[in-house]
Design a protein around this nucleic acid. Structure first.
Length: 199
DNA sequence: TGACAGATGTACT
DNA sequence: GTACATCTGTCAG
């Protein structure tokens, strides 16, 4: 149930490290697949050395400097896409990386995209896997998650259970800042890996 | 469990 | 031109 009378987009305003955990338990849908979000990370724009927005706005990260509730998609390691929900007011460049989820609808489609041999638990466990399961690519960058488009975010289940906190995965700067949030005990959460370049 | 290849955009020199 | 990235799958041990 959703007791708030505010539009869902307004729930994404505020400091991203406080907003990000409220995305846990929400559902993200795209192209016939829906996932229940189990793990997120906060990236705090120009005040966060690990953020793509740390050095200010560029063509790549421009979406994060726009209004909240839009999808910032980036492509990395030459083969993986990852999805962020833009948070905070326009201009600050903050967002929440959606790191993992449980596929709750469209399992067949997700498996087609991820491969027939992939275990159900691994369909969307990890940011690259989640984007692939949902069929999200750079073409979806900038999509409004609260409009009548192909990508939709439904924020109505928080808090799901106890929220656990720890350092973010794979970041070499600000490697100890505890801005990774996941649903405690949930099996659909990725493994922690510290960046090999972290101090 | 751990090391590493894989492939390309981005930011910085 | 160069280093490296909000990663994943595979193979050695």
């Amino acid at each position: 149930m959703n007791s708030s009378h505010h539009p869902p987009r307004d729930r994404l305003l505020g400091p991203v490290e406080l907003v990000a955990p409220t995305i846990l338990g929400a559902t993200l849908s795209h192209a016939g697949v829906t996932v229940r979000i189990t793990e997120v990370e906060a990236y705090a724009g120009e005040r966060d050395p690990a953020s793509h927005a740390y050095r200010g706005e560029t063509a790549r990260n421009a979406v994060m400097f726009g209004p909240p509730g839009h999808l910032y998609v980036y492509f990395t390691y030459g083969m993986h896409h990852a999805c962020n929900v833009v948070c905070g007011p326009a201009g600050v460049g903050t967002g929440a990386l959606v790191r993992a989820g449980e596929v709750v609808d469209g399992c067949e489609l997700a498996r087609d995209r991820r491969g027939a041999r992939v275990r159900e638990r691994d369909l969307a466990r990890g940011p690259g896997r989640l984007a692939q399961a949902l069929g999200i690519t750079l073409a979806d960058g900038g999509a409004d998650l609260f409009a009548d488009g192909p990508a939709r975010l439904v924020l109505d289940a928080y808090p799901p259970e106890f929220v656990a906190t720890g350092p973010r995965v794979g970041v070499s700067l600000a490697a100890d800042v505890p801005w990774r949030f996941w649903i405690a005990g949930d099996p659909y959460v990725s493994d922690y890996k510290r960046s090999p370049r972290a101090p």
